[in-house]
Design a protein around this nucleic acid. Structure first.
Lengths: 204, 204, 204, 204
DNA sequence: GATGAATGAGAGTTCATTCAT
DNA sequence: CATGAATGAACTCTCATTCAT
């Protein structure tokens, strides 16, 4: 068995993402993470100190993945009129491709964000996208296409939760509503509702 | 020491709602539930069989509380134009006053709805509100105020998730967005965005 | 529900015989006994004081059933030459029809006869059959058909264990020897071996 | 505190033999086994999975100890006329020196041989001694000293139960018959009865 | 750096027994 | 006489963590 600290650490983190997103903090098993990571349990304690610290790292890591997407959006957007649509689309795409992310964020909310609150660097993880929207709103006002009183944080909140909500109830609602979330038309309608809601808020 | 089976059973269920909504299935402790219920652990097993069955009862109970609200909405609504606004308002009100409900639903989604799927009666728990919306859409079409192609289940889905999403990220987003969800204006804006999105879907 | 102390007591004892013979003392459940007896658990404690005392009563009861058979044998036997054969046949018959007896005796042996030792009246439960054999051996000596040195207690021991052993390994031996204990020929052979062994001991 | 998986596993098995033979499956305590084995309770679950699997291992182990004795008997016997006597003597010796074995077999019979039946390898654990007796009976017939119709499985059954029965009632019968099983003469008489019974069956 | 044997606290569950009704 | 709600101790089993190797 080859010795490679970097690789082992990365394997542990990846395994931890899978385990914590699947079972949550209380349900996750350190043994399972070690097995998935293909390493010994002792390694986890050597590299991450405790189950709790490992969980913190997972939270930070997951927030970073979305942050990377947001950085991309910010760099590439040009047209103000299309910005909302683009962000909604990118958020839906991201969450669709990262089911782990959705779950981790849900666990962390049920955890009352204790890990997020304990990590000072996360206070600023959304700064770029907030600033991007704030600037867009400002410009939109000047150009006369956006409302004077629109609160840019309301917009960010609506963007995130609008996309998120399609995924966060994805197990119970299909049962009680007897719907199929994989239906592309259904997805399209939901995206349009989110977009229309936010556009309405900005214009009004 | 008074003996009362009915009361004890109810106490256990109430304690279980509190414990499961707070900690989830894996994190909940049967000991804590017994202590909160002011009874012996054995009573829980006598009345509910196992931690898992107790959880199932909690899930069923919580769905029933919302179902009661929905029944009320259906009985009282008259004006088609106001229906969406009324439901959004009532859902937000309900979730605001029932934080346990939000959490339980989130835990159950993370649990992949295993308990919901195992309880056949829950398949029909949403039938009344679905039927109410379907009928409204039908009438709206005839009156010429609603879209021909509007899917009533999309509307129900958007109503539920629209309200839900305000609450389901209520711990992480205030931290990373530096917002205050208790601000009444913020709440109002969010409700308006949800209403506008759905109205747009119906009209378009 | 009719109130009848005698009947309830008898029902409990019958249920206890079934439960203890099936599961042994440690495996038996007071709840099961109450259910089988069609009465409340409290009754068991009222009439028998504890699980342990109830077990003691079961032991005493079972010994009595065999004692009744032995009394019958003693009264009816006449011919000295046939006595051994008769007793072996009657013992096999009894054990065949009373599987509970075999099991209870086995549990009690594994229990190191604590209950038997604690019940002084059981010290004399075998006195009649012992006396019967002793007298038979004495007469057999006088008539010249039995050995001078035959120990009558050896005979009783061999009679009891000879019959018993056909039943006490009735679950393991059929598996490892691949035999069918219900085969009448097999049973006959076993009885003959026991009879021949004891006759040999008496004659030699 | 030395760490040695092999040793710990062996200690647990030895402790389990003692505990299960003493208390049976239901009465045995995992805590007691751990204490006797001088290890932590968790080790038992790591190495044996469950109390039930540990019991299965004990059953298999005990059958093996007798199988070893039987292999020895088979290798060393020469004279056909002495075979029965030798086996009876060796069985009595073995059971005298292995009280655990007798008890475990009794528990397992009361357990309705569930563990024996669940272990396919035990179906053949008696094959060597069965084959040995079968061959002896065949040769005895050819030499004219054994009966034409003797069933070799009856012989094996009688050998095993004959020896076993001396031990399986060793706690109750001494009390109710007022005998001393440690008396060497008594033992000798019992062995002779068993031998005579089987010889009679073979000759007749 | 890496292993896996070992630990101890605590989890869910059972059960003989008691007691208010 | 009879019920069944309630108790508390003890049981089997789990798991985060430590540590000798």
């Amino acid at each position: 068995m080859e010795r490679n600290a970097e690789r082992t650490k990365a394997n542990i983190l990846a395994a931890a993402v899978a385990e914590f997103s699947d079972k949550g903090f209380a349900g996750a098993r350190v043994d399972s993470i070690a097995e998935m990571a293909g390493c010994n349990k002792g390694m986890i304690y050597q590299y991450y100190g405790s189950k709790e610290h490992l969980y913190d790292e997972v939270i930070a890591y997951e927030y970073q993945t979305l942050s990377n997407i947001e950085a991309e959006i910010i760099q590439n957007h040009t047209d103000l009129r299309e910005l909302i649509d683009v962000i909604v689309d990118r958020y839906f795409d991201f969450l669709l491709r990262h089911p782990d992310f959705v779950k981790i964020i849900m666990w962390e909310n049920l955890n009352e964000a204790r890990s997020v609150k304990a990590n000072p660097s996360l206070e600023h993880v959304k700064a770029p996208i907030i600033e991007c929207i704030r600037e867009a709103v400002r410009r939109g006002r000047r150009e006369g296409i956006f409302n004077e009183n629109a609160n840019s944080k309301v917009v960010v909140f609506a963007l995130i939760t609008g996309a998120f909500s399609y995924f966060s109830n994805c197990h119970t609602l299909p049962v009680v509503l007897r719907i199929d979330l994989n239906n592309p038309e259904f997805l399209l309608s939901c995206k349009q509702i989110v977009k229309a809601g936010i556009r309405s808020y900005l214009k009004k």
